[in-house]
């Protein structure tokens, strides 16, 4: 990272803020803080913020509402921080434009990795027709997928699914987002389609389909394409 990125942390817990400040500063970020939703909105508008860490449990405003407010004008990555067992909220947040989520307590290494992935993703122009990940190359123009140079035969749906996840490398896509994108609005409840196709894809592209490293399950939430 050439230039330090500005990160805005919106969280009302002093200890968590301090911890994030230490961790993120050590990892080359400039940190800005807000203890409430209102402060957060002001701070994001006045500083050139590259990425926001948003805690869903804020004192003054519902985190999901705040997220929608941000998404009216803020296009850069927002990562949600929340407590465990809040799957519904996580899904809602991802569906309303959050880029990623982390459940508290989390490891700081994991946080920094997710932030870097989100930042990288937001900066990619997305016009590169060839997506690469380890031994896998996906040519989105010719629809050819190679693993270690060997062409892998995929059905149309399998290819669309793989390309969608690979384009969003490192980012969680919810079941609904994937179903909507690949099968259309009529299939939002058909998660079993997704299970079947992911299982088929894993057999074709993973080194060991039972321990996937490319198509990673985010339990109860969705899938993420691993690096």
């Amino acid at each position: 990272m050439n230039q330090a990125e500005n990160v805005l942390i919106i969280d009302d817990e002093v200890q968590i803020r301090r911890l994030l400040e230490i961790t993120l500063t050590a990892n080359g970020f400039n940190t800005f803080f807000a203890a409430s939703g209102k402060e957060g909105l002001v701070s994001a508008a006045t500083h050139n913020i590259s990425i926001i860490l948003l805690d869903l449990g804020l004192p003054d405003i519902d985190g999901l509402d705040l997220l929608s407010k941000f998404r009216e004008w803020y296009t850069k990555p927002i990562i949600i921080l929340t407590v465990r067992d809040a799957e519904e909220d996580i899904i809602k947040a991802l569906d309303s434009g959050a880029n990623d989520y982390l459940t508290k307590p989390f490891r700081s290494g994991e946080l920094v990795a997710r932030m870097r992935a989100a930042l990288r993703l937001s900066k990619e122009k997305g016009d590169n027709p060839v997506l690469e990940s380890g031994s896998l190359t996906i040519d989105t123009v010719s629809h050819i997928v190679r693993k270690n140079g060997v062409i892998i035969k995929l059905t149309t749906t399998e290819f669309s699914l793989l390309a969608l996840l690979a384009r969003n490398k490192g980012r969680v896509l919810t079941h609904q987002q994937i179903l909507k994108e690949i099968w259309g609005f009529g299939y939002l409840e058909q998660t079993q389609y997704l299970r079947v196709f992911i299982a088929q894809l894993r057999k074709k592209i993973e080194d060991d389909p039972s321990i996937p490293t490319l198509l990673i399950t985010e339990s109860g939430i969705g899938y993420r394409f691993g690096a």
Partner: peptide, 29 residues
Amino acid sequence: ENLLNMSRLEGGRIKPRPDWHDVHDLVNE
């Protein structure tokens, strides 16, 4: 986590919300 789960169980607030899942994912997780 265990204490919270126990109190959810005791309070009868455990209602499974089944969805389609791959057992491999379960074991891997």
